[in-house]
């Protein structure tokens, strides 16, 4: 790892992959620094893992009482909840720190990042990179595995191949939503808490079959803030279930495209925000 970056400026490929490598390097350095307090790290990781367990446990309790919600069984409900949790947890780990943007602006540390020859977005996203958030991913993945096993899924080669694509797309979409809502702080200084209602609220929303919230909400999270592609559409695809809200079945193949669009939109918003910051000085 140490010498990956220590080369003179390279070609196009090098330029394009550099942010990812700088990201990995910064994240690694932070993780190593935090690992100097292993007891504290273990406790925090365990605590974070319990957080995911508690949320999935709530879904379990609700489904145990209900038997089935909107035609989704307990195992299917757990599949939705665990996949959503998994993707949001991974996205939170990768880009969650962007929500601290306002703090970086106020303290002037954004200026410090801007005088370094590395993307400030990468620097913010890796600031105090919290490996402990992996703690959320582990129980979510375990429950997802359990639920996949217990759901009545007609496994085809296509589904096996699609599963990782859907997971990666979901993570990318959730990370984009996280980044974009963080960028709002470029324009409105106190936007952090309001943005939380989109990020954490979106997370809470996607833990249940979206159809229980009614058509209006489903349309909003399909076409406005594309969270329907984080857990909901992938599960409909895996279960071969028609969309209960009557949206076309073709949408379940959209996640990779939505992911690209969402990442592009988030990147543009970041650039716009940074330009705004540099042209207003606030």
């Amino acid at each position: 790892m140490a010498d990956l970056l220590a080369r003179p400026c390279g070609g196009t490929v090098e330029r394009l992959t550099r942010p990812a490598r700088v990201y990995a390097l910064l994240a690694w350095t932070w993780s190593r620094a935090l690992a100097q307090y292993p007891a504290s790290l273990a406790l925090m990781t365990f605590g974070t893992a319990l957080g995911a367990v508690a949320e999935i446990f709530a879904v379990f309790v609700v489904f145990r009482h209900a038997g089935a919600l909107d035609g989704f069984s307990l195992a299917e409900g757990l599949l939705i909840a665990s996949l959503a949790n998994l993707m949001f947890a991974a996205a939170d780990m990768l880009m969650g720190m962007v929500e601290g943007l306002g703090q970086h602006i106020r303290s002037g540390s954004l200026d410090v990042m801007l005088v370094r020859p590395v993307s400030p977005l990468v620097q913010i996203a890796t600031d105090r990179f919290a490996v402990r958030r992996l703690g959320r991913v582990v129980p979510a993945a375990a429950v997802a595995g359990f639920a996949l096993y217990h759901c009545d899924i007609d496994w085809t080669a296509g589904k096996v191949l699609m599963l990782p694509v859907l997971v990666v797309s979901g993570v990318a979409i959730a990370a984009s939503v996280w980044t974009a809502s963080g960028c709002l702080q470029f324009f409105v200084a106190d936007a952090r808490e309001a943005a939380n209602s989109v990020t954490y609220g979106g997370h809470a929303l996607t833990e249940y079959p979206l159809s229980i919230y009614g058509k209006g909400v489903v349309y909003a999270v399909t076409f406005a803030v594309p969270l329907a592609f984080v857990g909901w559409q992938p599960v409909l695809y895996l279960l071969d279930r028609p969309d209960p809200t009557g949206l076309p079945d073709l949408l379940r193949f959209a996640p990779p495209f939505v992911a690209v669009a969402a990442c592009t939109a988030a990147a543009l918003l970041w650039r716009l925000g940074l330009r705004h910051y540099r042209s207003t000085g606030s």
Binding site: V62, A66, A194, N196, Y213
Partner: peptide, 18 residues
């Protein structure tokens, strides 16, 4: 207030479904 209301609506919708 916005955050609390959003979470209130989400949780209420889940419990109403239940």
């Amino acid at each position: 207030i916005l955050t609390n209301s959003v979470f209130g609506c989400i949780n209420a919708a889940v419990l109403l479904a239940l």
